[in-house]
Write a protein that binds this DNA or RNA. Structure first.
Lengths: 155, 155
DNA sequence: GAAGGTATACTCGGATAACAGCTGTCCGAGTACATAAGG
DNA sequence: CCTTATGTACTCGGACAGCTGTTATCCGAGTATACCTTC
């Protein structure tokens, strides 16, 4: 079980978009900034656009720009935009199959195993929702001249 | 991103092993209990045996039995036994690649994005570690005659 | 009748294919700009 | 000189292969049991 690489790409790219500020930036430039595949990064940016985290501008001088300030974008927003809203643990209801399933009466409540796993997953989602990209930007600002580097790399 | 199906199989199977109690049960019987593939469940049980959650008994009348009471088995134990101890978010250090990587000085601390994702993952692992299989058994005991059904299905 | 050896059947254990989803790439649709022609 | 039509180049957007990891299966190694032979 591993998170899609696109999540990492999206997070760094969103931070770069904020560092630049202003007009839209093409996926090609954003990819060169970190040595990524432009086409595949574009795919991830399309997912972010569908989730309304960025807005896409077609045509020359087009590209992507942030749809909201970083304060209004949580880690959960990005993860769900890239990965989709699916659950980590997907209950197959095997309690209803096989000999035990045949001998048991039709279950009424939620599977106890599923409930326990969802509780843990909920803690994860909550921790993701509690951190915004602005919080990460604060840590990044500790390193010197980040903004200048990003701006010179993306122009 | 989806958790391996084997985690669900392992959790239900561990609970069944406790309901039965006593002697070892073969993977074939455990698989029939929920209509699973015996060979593949056996693979998962081998992973549980390596993690010392169950002990395997070879030969006829052999099988698997719990190595510890359910109180001493957490959800995290099972997840890590099946999935391995790998992180959900694996940082590729793309901050060191591309134009930004070339222009930036060699980074000293941990990547801020990675740190934030690990914090959330830590919350998940903690929530998994806080729940033992005995807690799930308590919920299961609410449903009537679970033990009799499991025992009659596994004999 | 008892002891020992042997064959057997049943289990785990690991090595081997089949499938799905992530990863990466390509080409078409659409748009803003630049250019050139006409009034 | 200003306006307008047109061509062009650059962008997003979605459709198309490749590859890693999960899912599923099969066969060999090892052992307790049952049986048969022998004393």
């Amino acid at each position: 079980m591993r998170m899609a690489k696109g999540v990492e790409w999206a997070l760094h790219t969103l931070l770069n978009l904020d560092m630049i500020g202003g007009g839209p930036v093409g996926s090609g430039q954003l990819a060169e900034a970190h040595g990524l595949s432009a086409s595949y990064l574009n795919k991830q940016l399309q997912l972010l656009a569908r989730a309304q985290l960025v807005v896409s501008v077609p045509g020359p001088r087009g590209g992507f720009r942030l749809a909201r300030p970083l304060e209004a974008i949580t880690l959960l927003d990005v993860v769900e935009a890239i990965e989709g809203g699916t659950q980590l643990f997907q209950c197959t209801e095997i309690r209803c199959c096989g000999k035990i399933g045949e001998l048991s009466p039709p279950p009424t409540g939620v599977c106890a195993v599923n409930a326990a796993m969802r509780r843990a997953e909920q803690a994860w989602r909550q921790a993701l929702a509690d951190q915004s990209l602005a919080d990460i930007r604060v840590e990044l600002d500790g390193t010197p001249m980040v903004r200048q580097i990003v701006r010179s790399a993306l122009t």
